[in-house]
């Protein structure tokens, strides 16, 4: 019997939902295969988040606390992960596929000489390894993939699994960690435009996504208003992030974020495969586009063919009515 260790990502003082999805899945697998589900939190105030983890059945929680984890820096994070893994000696280490994870996953695999599967949409255990599905070719198709080895790392796309509550009373293990300035080869100078109060796209219930069709001020204003009414997060296609009209962290798609909200409203977005790659798993998709042949309509549950400048105002009004 060995352990399945989930890394718990913290952002803006909150446990990332995606990490809990992964923990839930690991707990499930641990049950099926007689392993234990464990978790690790690497954060200046790691201990504060233990209570949240308890709800999802971790049997051990490893804590690494150090001020240096205030911001994401790969070298100390790698060192911390390495010490936890050395101590816990898990069979599987699972991550939510965040940008921070992507930053360290390859290096960690090389450091641990572990097999690694990144960005999987499902994963399960086999007698000699891990079996996973990965979206490939810009998420046009799925590949069945296997990893063999004494230790295996996986990162999981957000929204791939549901949360399953199963309260537990985990053993808390604080892993001692010290980090010398000189080890820090790279220096983090500053963090720009951290979207503090903005809603985290990968966790948003509703997303209003703006495309090239909305690039002028009038279009942007309409997008904001629509998002307001719905209490939605705002996302963007590459056309807008590229043009500097929207913050790059809002890009949805192959290069940008993968999202899976309950409602996704694509306004003035053509639906190129690289964009669809990031949002095709949304529950309900609405598309507003003046080109009836735009590919976005092929995946939209509700398509409105029309000029967004004419459609959005009445749309927003109607939504307001419905809301109150």
């Amino acid at each position: 019997m060995s352990s399945l260790l989930t890394h718990i990502a913290i952002s803006d003082g909150k446990v990332k939902r995606a990490s809990l999805e992964v923990l839930s899945r690991c707990k499930e697998l641990a049950g099926q295969h007689g392993h234990t589900a464990e978790a690790m939190i690497i954060d200046p105030d790691a201990a504060e988040y233990v209570d949240r983890i308890k709800e999802y059945g971790a049997e051990k929680v490893y804590l690494v606390e150090d001020p240096i984890f205030k911001n994401h820096i790969n070298i100390p994070l790698l060192k911390a992960l390495n010490s936890v893994i050395t101590q816990a000696n898990p069979y599987l280490v699972a991550f939510a596929s965040t940008e921070s994870t992507k930053d360290i996953l390859g290096a960690l695999a090389a450091k641990q000489d572990a097999a690694v599967l990144s960005d999987v949409s499902t994963f399960s255990l086999t007698d000699n390894g891990v079996e996973a599905t990965r979206p490939v070719m810009a998420a046009k198709i799925l590949s069945d993939t296997q990893a063999k080895g004494d230790q295996i790392l996986v990162s999981v796309r957000s929204g791939s699994y549901d949360l399953i509550e199963s309260p537990s009373d985990p053993e808390i293990i604080t892993v001692d960690f010290n980090f010398e300035e000189h080890e820090l080869k790279a220096t983090l100078r500053e963090v720009l435009g951290a979207s503090g109060d903005k809603i985290d796209l990968s966790e948003a219930e509703t997303i209003v996504a703006a495309g090239r069709g909305t690039k002028d001020d009038k279009g942007q204003a309409l997008i904001e208003e629509l998002a307001d009414v719905l209490g939605a997060a705002i996302g963007a296609s590459r056309a807008l992030t590229e043009a500097g009209i929207m913050d790059p962290s809002l890009q949805i798609g192959q290069t940008g974020k993968v999202v899976s909200p309950q409602l996704y409203i694509a306004v003035g977005i053509s639906g190129a495969i690289q964009h669809v790659a990031g949002m095709a798993n949304s529950k309900v998709i609405v598309a507003i586009n003046k080109d009836p042949d735009a590919p976005i309509f092929d995946i939209a549950d509700y398509g409105i063919v029309g000029d967004l400048y004419k459609v959005l105002p009445p749309f927003i009004e109607e939504l307001k009515k419905i809301k109150n």
């Binding site: 599967l117 799925l142 590949s143 990893a147 095709a280 995946i299 029309g306």
Partner: peptide, 21 residues
């Protein structure tokens, strides 16, 4: 290689819904 692709599959296709004009 420690990892291997054992096969490829179509994605469960998402049905286009209604398109209103």
């Amino acid at each position: 290689p420690q990892t291997q692709v054992t096969g490829y599959r179509e994605k469960p296709a998402r049905q286009a819904g209604e398109k209103f004009e």
